[in-house]
Nucleic acid binder design. Structure first.
Lengths: 237, 237
DNA sequence: TTAACCGCATGACATAGATCAATAAATTCG
DNA sequence: CGAATTTATTGATCTATGTCATGCGGTTAA
Protein backbone atom coordinates (compact mmCIF):
# COMPACT_ATOMS: atom_id res chain seq x y z
CA UNK A 1 0.00 0.00 0.00
CA UNK A 2 2.76 1.95 -0.70
CA UNK A 3 2.77 5.29 0.77
CA UNK A 4 4.26 8.12 -1.10
CA UNK A 5 7.52 9.39 0.18
CA UNK A 6 8.34 12.84 -1.06
CA UNK A 7 11.99 11.92 -1.51
CA UNK A 8 13.05 9.90 -4.51
CA UNK A 9 11.87 11.83 -7.52
CA UNK A 10 8.61 10.35 -8.45
CA UNK A 11 8.63 11.53 -11.90
CA UNK A 12 5.13 11.23 -12.96
CA UNK A 13 3.68 12.65 -9.87
CA UNK A 14 6.18 15.27 -9.04
CA UNK A 15 4.79 16.42 -5.78
CA UNK A 16 2.53 13.70 -4.72
CA UNK A 17 2.43 14.30 -1.04
CA UNK A 18 1.76 11.53 1.42
CA UNK A 19 -1.91 12.00 0.83
CA UNK A 20 -4.30 9.33 1.84
CA UNK A 21 -6.38 7.28 -0.53
CA UNK A 22 -8.09 10.27 -1.98
CA UNK A 23 -5.49 10.52 -4.66
CA UNK A 24 -2.86 12.84 -5.88
CA UNK A 25 -3.86 16.36 -5.25
CA UNK A 26 -1.71 18.55 -7.34
CA UNK A 27 -1.90 22.22 -6.86
CA UNK A 28 -3.71 23.00 -10.06
CA UNK A 29 -7.31 22.08 -10.53
CA UNK A 30 -9.21 21.99 -13.78
CA UNK A 31 -10.39 25.45 -12.90
CA UNK A 32 -6.92 26.61 -13.89
CA UNK A 33 -7.42 25.12 -17.33
CA UNK A 34 -10.67 26.85 -18.11
CA UNK A 35 -13.13 24.43 -16.60
CA UNK A 36 -16.52 25.65 -15.51
CA UNK A 37 -17.60 24.82 -12.00
CA UNK A 38 -21.01 23.36 -11.19
CA UNK A 39 -22.77 22.63 -7.96
CA UNK A 40 -24.93 19.59 -7.37
CA UNK A 41 -27.28 18.64 -4.58
CA UNK A 42 -26.95 15.39 -2.73
CA UNK A 43 -27.83 12.39 -4.89
CA UNK A 44 -28.00 14.29 -8.13
CA UNK A 45 -26.95 12.35 -11.17
CA UNK A 46 -24.12 14.08 -13.03
CA UNK A 47 -24.34 11.73 -16.01
CA UNK A 48 -25.64 8.29 -16.88
CA UNK A 49 -23.75 5.29 -18.09
CA UNK A 50 -24.02 5.32 -21.86
CA UNK A 51 -24.37 9.06 -22.23
CA UNK A 52 -22.02 10.51 -24.83
CA UNK A 53 -18.80 11.49 -23.06
CA UNK A 54 -18.24 15.18 -23.62
CA UNK A 55 -16.62 16.34 -20.41
CA UNK A 56 -14.03 15.40 -17.90
CA UNK A 57 -14.80 16.11 -14.25
CA UNK A 58 -12.83 16.86 -11.12
CA UNK A 59 -14.31 16.81 -7.66
CA UNK A 60 -13.81 20.22 -6.08
CA UNK A 61 -15.75 19.50 -2.91
CA UNK A 62 -18.08 16.82 -1.62
CA UNK A 63 -18.20 13.18 -2.64
CA UNK A 64 -19.23 11.51 -5.88
CA UNK A 65 -19.78 7.82 -6.62
CA UNK A 66 -19.53 5.97 -9.91
CA UNK A 67 -21.66 2.88 -10.33
CA UNK A 68 -22.73 0.33 -12.89
CA UNK A 69 -25.98 -1.61 -13.08
CA UNK A 70 -26.65 -5.05 -14.41
CA UNK A 71 -29.87 -5.39 -16.40
CA UNK A 72 -31.62 -7.14 -13.51
CA UNK A 73 -30.88 -4.24 -11.21
CA UNK A 74 -27.84 -5.48 -9.34
CA UNK A 75 -25.63 -2.49 -8.70
CA UNK A 76 -21.91 -2.14 -8.09
CA UNK A 77 -20.45 1.12 -6.89
CA UNK A 78 -17.03 1.11 -8.53
CA UNK A 79 -15.48 4.30 -7.17
CA UNK A 80 -16.10 6.77 -4.40
CA UNK A 81 -14.39 10.02 -5.30
CA UNK A 82 -13.34 12.93 -3.17
CA UNK A 83 -11.63 16.24 -3.64
CA UNK A 84 -9.02 16.23 -6.36
CA UNK A 85 -10.12 13.00 -7.99
CA UNK A 86 -11.27 12.94 -11.58
CA UNK A 87 -13.90 11.03 -13.48
CA UNK A 88 -15.63 10.91 -16.82
CA UNK A 89 -12.94 9.23 -18.86
CA UNK A 90 -13.54 5.70 -20.10
CA UNK A 91 -11.38 5.46 -23.17
CA UNK A 92 -14.58 5.45 -25.13
CA UNK A 93 -17.06 7.94 -26.49
CA UNK A 94 -19.62 7.03 -23.86
CA UNK A 95 -19.44 7.13 -20.09
CA UNK A 96 -18.95 3.65 -18.70
CA UNK A 97 -20.58 4.35 -15.34
CA UNK A 98 -23.27 6.54 -13.88
CA UNK A 99 -21.92 9.39 -11.74
CA UNK A 100 -24.03 10.44 -8.79
CA UNK A 101 -23.24 12.70 -5.87
CA UNK A 102 -23.28 11.29 -2.36
CA UNK A 103 -23.32 14.73 -0.77
CA UNK A 104 -23.69 18.26 -1.99
CA UNK A 105 -20.76 18.68 -4.30
CA UNK A 106 -18.99 21.14 -6.54
CA UNK A 107 -17.32 19.82 -9.62
CA UNK A 108 -15.00 21.29 -12.22
CA UNK A 109 -16.15 20.33 -15.70
CA UNK A 110 -13.74 20.50 -18.60
CA UNK A 111 -14.77 19.99 -22.23
CA UNK A 112 -12.96 16.94 -23.57
CA UNK A 113 -11.69 18.79 -26.62
CA UNK A 114 -9.78 21.09 -24.28
CA UNK A 115 -8.21 18.07 -22.67
CA UNK A 116 -6.72 16.79 -25.88
CA UNK A 117 -4.87 19.98 -26.52
CA UNK A 118 -3.27 20.54 -23.17
CA UNK A 119 -0.13 18.73 -22.12
CA UNK A 120 -0.58 20.06 -18.62
CA UNK A 121 -4.01 18.55 -18.35
CA UNK A 122 -2.76 15.25 -19.76
CA UNK A 123 -0.05 15.26 -17.16
CA UNK A 124 -2.39 15.88 -14.27
CA UNK A 125 -4.63 13.24 -15.75
CA UNK A 126 -2.00 10.53 -15.87
CA UNK A 127 -1.08 11.36 -12.31
CA UNK A 128 -4.64 11.14 -11.02
CA UNK A 129 -5.54 8.09 -13.03
CA UNK A 130 -2.61 6.06 -11.80
CA UNK A 131 -3.57 6.91 -8.25
CA UNK A 132 -7.15 5.89 -8.80
CA UNK A 133 -5.94 2.73 -10.49
CA UNK A 134 -4.08 1.76 -7.33
CA UNK A 135 -7.27 2.20 -5.37
CA UNK A 136 -9.18 0.08 -7.88
CA UNK A 137 -6.56 -2.65 -7.51
CA UNK A 138 -6.93 -2.60 -3.77
CA UNK A 139 -10.69 -2.68 -4.16
CA UNK A 140 -10.48 -5.71 -6.45
CA UNK A 141 -8.72 -7.55 -3.63
CA UNK A 142 -11.49 -6.54 -1.29
CA UNK A 143 -14.24 -7.67 -3.66
CA UNK A 144 -12.54 -10.84 -4.78
CA UNK A 145 -10.94 -12.12 -1.61
CA UNK A 146 -12.09 -10.49 1.61
CA UNK A 147 -14.75 -11.61 4.08
CA UNK A 148 -17.65 -9.36 5.04
CA UNK A 149 -15.96 -8.26 8.26
CA UNK A 150 -12.72 -7.54 6.43
CA UNK A 151 -14.59 -5.50 3.83
CA UNK A 152 -16.38 -3.33 6.36
CA UNK A 153 -13.23 -2.89 8.44
CA UNK A 154 -11.28 -1.92 5.31
CA UNK A 155 -14.00 0.50 4.31
CA UNK A 156 -13.96 2.22 7.68
CA UNK A 157 -10.17 2.36 7.80
CA UNK A 158 -10.19 3.91 4.37
CA UNK A 159 -11.92 6.89 5.94
CA UNK A 160 -9.26 7.43 8.57
CA UNK A 161 -6.40 9.62 7.35
CA UNK A 162 -2.83 8.40 7.75
CA UNK A 163 -3.77 5.07 9.20
CA UNK A 164 -4.02 1.55 7.93
CA UNK A 165 -1.30 1.49 5.34
CA UNK A 166 2.08 -0.08 5.81
CA UNK A 167 3.40 3.32 6.73
CA UNK A 168 0.72 3.51 9.39
CA UNK A 169 1.76 5.88 12.09
CA UNK A 170 -0.02 3.98 14.83
CA UNK A 171 -2.11 5.64 17.49
CA UNK A 172 -1.08 9.13 18.59
CA UNK A 173 -1.86 8.12 22.10
CA UNK A 174 -1.62 4.47 23.09
CA UNK A 175 -4.63 4.60 25.36
CA UNK A 176 -6.85 6.74 23.26
CA UNK A 177 -6.94 5.39 19.78
CA UNK A 178 -10.25 6.83 18.67
CA UNK A 179 -11.51 8.57 15.58
CA UNK A 180 -14.81 10.14 14.61
CA UNK A 181 -16.15 9.77 11.14
CA UNK A 182 -19.05 10.68 8.92
CA UNK A 183 -20.05 8.15 6.31
CA UNK A 184 -21.92 10.21 3.68
CA UNK A 185 -23.32 6.90 2.43
CA UNK A 186 -26.42 4.89 3.25
CA UNK A 187 -26.14 1.23 4.21
CA UNK A 188 -27.34 0.34 0.72
CA UNK A 189 -24.63 2.42 -0.92
CA UNK A 190 -21.99 0.89 1.33
CA UNK A 191 -23.32 -2.58 0.51
CA UNK A 192 -23.18 -1.83 -3.20
CA UNK A 193 -19.64 -0.55 -2.83
CA UNK A 194 -18.47 -3.56 -0.83
CA UNK A 195 -20.28 -6.19 -2.90
CA UNK A 196 -22.51 -7.22 0.03
CA UNK A 197 -26.18 -6.94 0.93
CA UNK A 198 -27.53 -4.24 3.15
CA UNK A 199 -28.37 -6.85 5.79
CA UNK A 200 -24.82 -8.12 5.93
CA UNK A 201 -23.41 -4.61 6.26
CA UNK A 202 -25.88 -3.90 9.03
CA UNK A 203 -25.02 -7.09 10.87
CA UNK A 204 -21.28 -6.52 10.64
CA UNK A 205 -21.64 -2.97 11.91
CA UNK A 206 -23.77 -4.18 14.82
CA UNK A 207 -21.20 -6.82 15.54
CA UNK A 208 -18.34 -4.32 15.61
CA UNK A 209 -20.42 -2.29 18.03
CA UNK A 210 -21.07 -5.33 20.22
CA UNK A 211 -17.37 -6.07 20.25
CA UNK A 212 -16.63 -2.54 21.42
CA UNK A 213 -14.58 -1.55 18.39
CA UNK A 214 -16.94 1.20 17.28
CA UNK A 215 -19.76 3.30 18.65
CA UNK A 216 -22.67 4.39 16.53
CA UNK A 217 -23.66 7.96 17.18
CA UNK A 218 -26.04 8.22 14.26
CA UNK A 219 -26.39 5.68 11.50
CA UNK A 220 -24.08 7.74 9.30
CA UNK A 221 -21.81 8.91 12.08
CA UNK A 222 -19.53 6.40 13.67
CA UNK A 223 -16.91 6.70 16.32
CA UNK A 224 -14.04 4.27 16.00
CA UNK A 225 -13.05 3.47 19.55
CA UNK A 226 -10.01 1.37 18.71
CA UNK A 227 -8.58 2.15 15.32
CA UNK A 228 -5.77 -0.35 15.71
CA UNK A 229 -8.16 -3.19 16.51
CA UNK A 230 -10.26 -2.28 13.52
CA UNK A 231 -7.16 -2.20 11.38
CA UNK A 232 -6.30 -5.72 12.49
CA UNK A 233 -9.61 -6.83 11.04
CA UNK A 234 -8.98 -5.63 7.51
CA UNK A 235 -7.21 -8.81 6.40
CA UNK A 236 -4.11 -6.81 5.63
CA UNK A 237 -2.18 -7.69 8.81
CA UNK B 1 -30.96 -8.30 -3.26
CA UNK B 2 -32.71 -4.98 -3.27
CA UNK B 3 -32.59 -4.35 -6.95
CA UNK B 4 -33.06 -0.96 -8.42
CA UNK B 5 -35.92 -0.73 -10.82
CA UNK B 6 -35.66 1.67 -13.70
CA UNK B 7 -38.63 3.59 -12.41
CA UNK B 8 -36.60 4.44 -9.34
CA UNK B 9 -35.40 7.23 -11.49
CA UNK B 10 -32.28 5.40 -12.39
CA UNK B 11 -32.26 4.88 -16.08
CA UNK B 12 -30.95 1.53 -17.01
CA UNK B 13 -27.74 2.15 -18.75
CA UNK B 14 -27.72 2.47 -22.43
CA UNK B 15 -25.36 0.17 -24.11
CA UNK B 16 -21.76 0.88 -24.51
CA UNK B 17 -20.58 0.36 -28.02
CA UNK B 18 -18.46 -2.61 -28.93
CA UNK B 19 -15.11 -1.34 -27.82
CA UNK B 20 -12.96 -4.31 -27.11
CA UNK B 21 -11.35 -4.84 -23.75
CA UNK B 22 -7.82 -4.78 -25.00
CA UNK B 23 -7.46 -1.05 -24.68
CA UNK B 24 -6.65 1.81 -26.93
CA UNK B 25 -3.83 0.82 -29.12
CA UNK B 26 -2.33 3.97 -30.39
CA UNK B 27 0.17 3.72 -33.14
CA UNK B 28 3.24 4.57 -31.10
CA UNK B 29 4.69 2.20 -28.59
CA UNK B 30 7.16 3.06 -25.87
CA UNK B 31 9.84 1.82 -28.20
CA UNK B 32 9.35 5.08 -30.08
CA UNK B 33 10.16 6.99 -26.92
CA UNK B 34 13.44 5.32 -26.18
CA UNK B 35 12.27 2.34 -24.15
CA UNK B 36 14.38 -0.77 -24.05
CA UNK B 37 12.71 -4.05 -24.88
CA UNK B 38 13.03 -7.16 -22.71
CA UNK B 39 11.93 -10.71 -23.17
CA UNK B 40 10.57 -12.88 -20.38
CA UNK B 41 9.81 -16.57 -20.15
CA UNK B 42 6.42 -17.83 -19.07
CA UNK B 43 5.75 -17.17 -15.39
CA UNK B 44 8.73 -14.91 -14.87
CA UNK B 45 8.21 -12.17 -12.33
CA UNK B 46 8.84 -8.74 -13.84
CA UNK B 47 8.68 -6.98 -10.48
CA UNK B 48 7.28 -7.56 -7.03
CA UNK B 49 4.72 -5.55 -5.15
CA UNK B 50 6.64 -3.15 -2.95
CA UNK B 51 9.69 -2.90 -5.21
CA UNK B 52 10.76 0.69 -5.86
CA UNK B 53 8.98 1.85 -9.00
CA UNK B 54 11.57 2.90 -11.52
CA UNK B 55 10.06 1.92 -14.84
CA UNK B 56 6.88 1.98 -16.77
CA UNK B 57 6.06 -1.05 -18.92
CA UNK B 58 4.13 -1.75 -22.07
CA UNK B 59 3.24 -5.23 -23.26
CA UNK B 60 4.69 -5.73 -26.72
CA UNK B 61 3.69 -9.37 -27.05
CA UNK B 62 2.37 -12.13 -24.82
CA UNK B 63 0.30 -11.76 -21.68
CA UNK B 64 1.13 -10.35 -18.27
CA UNK B 65 -0.85 -10.45 -15.05
CA UNK B 66 -0.77 -8.13 -12.07
CA UNK B 67 -1.71 -9.56 -8.71
CA UNK B 68 -1.77 -8.72 -5.04
CA UNK B 69 -1.39 -11.05 -2.09
CA UNK B 70 -2.89 -10.84 1.37
CA UNK B 71 -0.55 -11.80 4.21
CA UNK B 72 -2.26 -15.17 4.64
CA UNK B 73 -1.66 -16.06 1.00
CA UNK B 74 -4.99 -15.22 -0.59
CA UNK B 75 -4.26 -13.88 -4.04
CA UNK B 76 -6.21 -11.59 -6.33
CA UNK B 77 -5.20 -11.19 -9.95
CA UNK B 78 -6.20 -7.59 -10.64
CA UNK B 79 -5.34 -7.20 -14.31
CA UNK B 80 -4.56 -9.42 -17.24
CA UNK B 81 -2.69 -7.36 -19.80
CA UNK B 82 -2.16 -7.88 -23.48
CA UNK B 83 -0.44 -6.11 -26.32
CA UNK B 84 -0.51 -2.35 -26.05
CA UNK B 85 -1.50 -2.23 -22.40
CA UNK B 86 0.72 -0.56 -19.82
CA UNK B 87 1.61 -1.26 -16.24
CA UNK B 88 3.97 -0.20 -13.50
CA UNK B 89 2.29 3.03 -12.44
CA UNK B 90 0.66 3.21 -9.05
CA UNK B 91 0.84 6.88 -8.22
CA UNK B 92 3.43 5.90 -5.67
CA UNK B 93 7.13 5.22 -5.47
CA UNK B 94 6.54 1.52 -5.09
CA UNK B 95 4.77 -0.94 -7.32
CA UNK B 96 1.36 -1.77 -5.90
CA UNK B 97 1.15 -5.23 -7.48
CA UNK B 98 3.41 -8.03 -8.54
CA UNK B 99 3.76 -8.35 -12.32
CA UNK B 100 4.22 -11.86 -13.69
CA UNK B 101 4.08 -13.17 -17.23
CA UNK B 102 1.44 -15.72 -18.15
CA UNK B 103 3.19 -16.62 -21.39
CA UNK B 104 6.48 -15.80 -22.99
CA UNK B 105 6.35 -12.06 -23.38
CA UNK B 106 8.23 -9.08 -24.67
CA UNK B 107 7.86 -5.83 -22.85
CA UNK B 108 8.94 -2.25 -23.53
CA UNK B 109 10.45 -0.73 -20.42
CA UNK B 110 10.68 3.02 -20.06
CA UNK B 111 12.56 4.77 -17.26
CA UNK B 112 10.08 6.81 -15.27
CA UNK B 113 12.21 9.94 -15.44
CA UNK B 114 11.76 9.83 -19.22
CA UNK B 115 8.03 9.73 -18.74
CA UNK B 116 7.99 12.92 -16.79
CA UNK B 117 9.46 14.95 -19.57
CA UNK B 118 7.45 13.79 -22.50
CA UNK B 119 4.05 15.20 -23.28
CA UNK B 120 3.58 12.54 -25.92
CA UNK B 121 4.15 9.78 -23.42
CA UNK B 122 1.80 11.44 -20.94
CA UNK B 123 -0.80 11.57 -23.63
CA UNK B 124 -0.50 7.94 -24.56
CA UNK B 125 -0.53 7.17 -20.87
CA UNK B 126 -3.77 8.97 -20.16
CA UNK B 127 -5.38 7.20 -23.07
CA UNK B 128 -4.25 3.73 -22.00
CA UNK B 129 -5.02 4.27 -18.37
CA UNK B 130 -8.56 5.38 -19.00
CA UNK B 131 -9.11 2.29 -21.08
CA UNK B 132 -7.74 0.03 -18.41
CA UNK B 133 -9.83 1.86 -15.87
CA UNK B 134 -12.97 0.95 -17.80
CA UNK B 135 -11.92 -2.68 -17.68
CA UNK B 136 -11.29 -2.45 -13.95
CA UNK B 137 -14.77 -1.00 -13.49
CA UNK B 138 -16.29 -3.87 -15.40
CA UNK B 139 -14.23 -6.30 -13.37
CA UNK B 140 -15.44 -4.75 -10.11
CA UNK B 141 -18.97 -5.56 -11.20
CA UNK B 142 -17.92 -9.11 -11.88
CA UNK B 143 -16.22 -9.50 -8.52
CA UNK B 144 -18.83 -7.70 -6.50
CA UNK B 145 -22.06 -8.82 -8.09
CA UNK B 146 -21.80 -11.80 -10.43
CA UNK B 147 -22.39 -15.50 -9.73
CA UNK B 148 -19.73 -18.11 -10.45
CA UNK B 149 -21.33 -19.07 -13.77
CA UNK B 150 -21.63 -15.42 -14.80
CA UNK B 151 -17.98 -14.84 -13.92
CA UNK B 152 -16.71 -17.75 -15.96
CA UNK B 153 -18.98 -16.91 -18.89
CA UNK B 154 -17.83 -13.27 -18.78
CA UNK B 155 -14.21 -14.38 -18.65
CA UNK B 156 -14.59 -16.60 -21.70
CA UNK B 157 -16.51 -13.94 -23.63
CA UNK B 158 -13.79 -11.48 -22.82
CA UNK B 159 -11.48 -13.64 -24.95
CA UNK B 160 -13.72 -13.51 -28.00
CA UNK B 161 -13.04 -10.48 -30.19
CA UNK B 162 -15.96 -8.29 -31.26
CA UNK B 163 -18.53 -10.17 -29.25
CA UNK B 164 -20.26 -9.63 -25.96
CA UNK B 165 -20.84 -5.91 -25.93
CA UNK B 166 -24.34 -4.77 -26.67
CA UNK B 167 -23.02 -3.58 -29.94
CA UNK B 168 -22.28 -7.26 -30.38
CA UNK B 169 -22.25 -8.17 -34.01
CA UNK B 170 -23.90 -11.51 -33.37
CA UNK B 171 -22.85 -14.73 -35.01
CA UNK B 172 -21.41 -14.50 -38.51
CA UNK B 173 -23.35 -17.59 -39.36
CA UNK B 174 -26.56 -18.31 -37.49
CA UNK B 175 -26.00 -22.03 -37.39
CA UNK B 176 -22.31 -22.05 -36.68
CA UNK B 177 -21.64 -19.79 -33.75
CA UNK B 178 -18.37 -21.31 -32.61
CA UNK B 179 -15.04 -19.96 -31.53
CA UNK B 180 -11.76 -21.56 -30.58
CA UNK B 181 -9.69 -20.14 -27.80
CA UNK B 182 -6.48 -20.62 -25.89
CA UNK B 183 -6.54 -19.69 -22.23
CA UNK B 184 -2.88 -19.05 -21.34
CA UNK B 185 -3.96 -19.38 -17.71
CA UNK B 186 -4.19 -22.30 -15.30
CA UNK B 187 -7.40 -22.98 -13.41
CA UNK B 188 -5.79 -21.47 -10.34
CA UNK B 189 -4.92 -18.25 -12.16
CA UNK B 190 -8.43 -18.03 -13.56
CA UNK B 191 -9.83 -18.62 -10.07
CA UNK B 192 -7.64 -15.88 -8.63
CA UNK B 193 -8.71 -13.52 -11.37
CA UNK B 194 -12.41 -14.26 -10.92
CA UNK B 195 -12.40 -14.28 -7.12
CA UNK B 196 -13.36 -17.97 -6.96
CA UNK B 197 -11.69 -21.20 -5.89
CA UNK B 198 -10.09 -23.56 -8.35
CA UNK B 199 -12.76 -26.16 -7.58
CA UNK B 200 -15.59 -23.80 -8.44
CA UNK B 201 -13.96 -22.80 -11.72
CA UNK B 202 -13.46 -26.45 -12.55
CA UNK B 203 -17.06 -27.32 -11.73
CA UNK B 204 -18.47 -24.44 -13.76
CA UNK B 205 -16.35 -25.36 -16.77
CA UNK B 206 -17.50 -28.99 -16.50
CA UNK B 207 -21.04 -27.80 -16.26
CA UNK B 208 -20.76 -25.65 -19.38
CA UNK B 209 -19.38 -28.70 -21.14
CA UNK B 210 -22.24 -30.88 -19.91
CA UNK B 211 -24.69 -28.28 -21.14
CA UNK B 212 -23.10 -28.36 -24.58
CA UNK B 213 -22.01 -24.72 -24.59
CA UNK B 214 -18.31 -25.48 -24.80
CA UNK B 215 -16.03 -28.34 -25.70
CA UNK B 216 -12.72 -28.89 -23.94
CA UNK B 217 -9.99 -29.83 -26.34
CA UNK B 218 -7.19 -29.50 -23.82
CA UNK B 219 -7.51 -28.01 -20.39
CA UNK B 220 -6.19 -24.70 -21.72
CA UNK B 221 -7.83 -24.90 -25.10
CA UNK B 222 -11.56 -24.51 -25.26
CA UNK B 223 -13.95 -24.46 -28.14
CA UNK B 224 -17.00 -22.32 -27.61
CA UNK B 225 -19.77 -24.13 -29.44
CA UNK B 226 -22.43 -21.49 -28.94
CA UNK B 227 -21.02 -18.05 -28.31
CA UNK B 228 -24.46 -16.46 -28.10
CA UNK B 229 -25.62 -18.90 -25.44
CA UNK B 230 -22.48 -18.26 -23.47
CA UNK B 231 -23.01 -14.55 -23.81
CA UNK B 232 -26.49 -14.92 -22.37
CA UNK B 233 -24.91 -16.36 -19.26
CA UNK B 234 -22.69 -13.37 -18.47
CA UNK B 235 -25.36 -11.53 -16.49
CA UNK B 236 -25.15 -8.64 -18.92
CA UNK B 237 -28.26 -9.53 -20.94
C1' DT C 1 7.87 -49.97 -17.33
C1' DT C 2 7.01 -47.82 -13.13
C1' DA C 3 7.13 -44.07 -10.06
C1' DA C 4 6.57 -39.49 -8.84
C1' DC C 5 4.51 -35.30 -9.88
C1' DC C 6 1.36 -31.87 -11.36
C1' DG C 7 -2.84 -29.79 -12.83
C1' DC C 8 -7.45 -30.85 -12.97
C1' DA C 9 -11.95 -33.03 -11.77
C1' DT C 10 -15.33 -34.61 -8.62
C1' DG C 11 -17.78 -36.01 -4.40
C1' DA C 12 -19.25 -35.13 0.50
C1' DC C 13 -19.87 -31.84 3.62
C1' DA C 14 -19.57 -27.14 6.02
C1' DT C 15 -20.59 -22.36 6.22
C1' DA C 16 -20.61 -17.37 5.12
C1' DG C 17 -23.54 -14.65 3.40
C1' DA C 18 -28.00 -14.20 0.77
C1' DT C 19 -32.87 -14.17 1.07
C1' DC C 20 -37.24 -13.57 3.21
C1' DA C 21 -39.87 -11.51 6.78
C1' DA C 22 -40.95 -8.83 10.60
C1' DT C 23 -39.94 -4.81 13.50
C1' DA C 24 -37.76 -0.60 14.94
C1' DA C 25 -35.69 3.65 14.38
C1' DA C 26 -35.10 7.88 11.75
C1' DT C 27 -36.80 11.33 8.71
C1' DT C 28 -40.26 13.80 6.12
C1' DC C 29 -44.62 15.78 5.66
C1' DG C 30 -49.29 17.49 6.49
C1' DC D 1 -47.26 17.30 16.77
C1' DG D 2 -48.49 12.55 14.82
C1' DA D 3 -48.88 9.98 10.45
C1' DA D 4 -46.48 8.36 6.63
C1' DT D 5 -42.39 7.02 4.62
C1' DT D 6 -37.91 5.69 4.30
C1' DT D 7 -33.88 3.46 6.19
C1' DA D 8 -31.79 0.32 9.33
C1' DT D 9 -31.81 -3.72 12.41
C1' DT D 10 -32.61 -8.36 13.62
C1' DG D 11 -34.11 -13.21 13.24
C1' DA D 12 -35.02 -17.58 10.69
C1' DT D 13 -33.98 -19.93 6.99
C1' DC D 14 -31.70 -21.33 2.47
C1' DT D 15 -28.12 -21.92 -0.85
C1' DA D 16 -24.07 -20.97 -3.58
C1' DT D 17 -19.71 -21.56 -2.99
C1' DG D 18 -15.89 -22.83 -0.07
C1' DT D 19 -13.32 -26.65 2.20
C1' DC D 20 -11.55 -31.13 2.53
C1' DA D 21 -10.38 -35.38 0.54
C1' DT D 22 -9.74 -38.63 -3.10
C1' DG D 23 -8.67 -40.05 -7.72
C1' DC D 24 -7.59 -39.43 -12.61
C1' DG D 25 -4.83 -38.43 -16.78
C1' DG D 26 -0.84 -36.49 -18.63
C1' DT D 27 4.13 -35.68 -18.42
C1' DT D 28 8.82 -36.33 -16.80
C1' DA D 29 12.48 -39.08 -15.09
C1' DA D 30 14.78 -43.20 -14.00
Amino acid sequence: MAYLEPQDGIRLARRVRPVRPSGAKSDETFADFGAKTSTYASHDVIYYEGDPARRLFEVASGTVMLFKLLPDGRRQVVEVLRQGEIFGLAGSDEYDCTAETLTEATVHELELRLVEGSAEVQCKLAKCLSNQMRILHEHAVLLGRKSAVERVASFLMYLVPDRGGLGCIGPDDEDNDGYDLKLHMTRQEIADYLGLTIETVSRVVSDLKRRGVIRIDRSDQIHLKRVCSLCQMTGMH
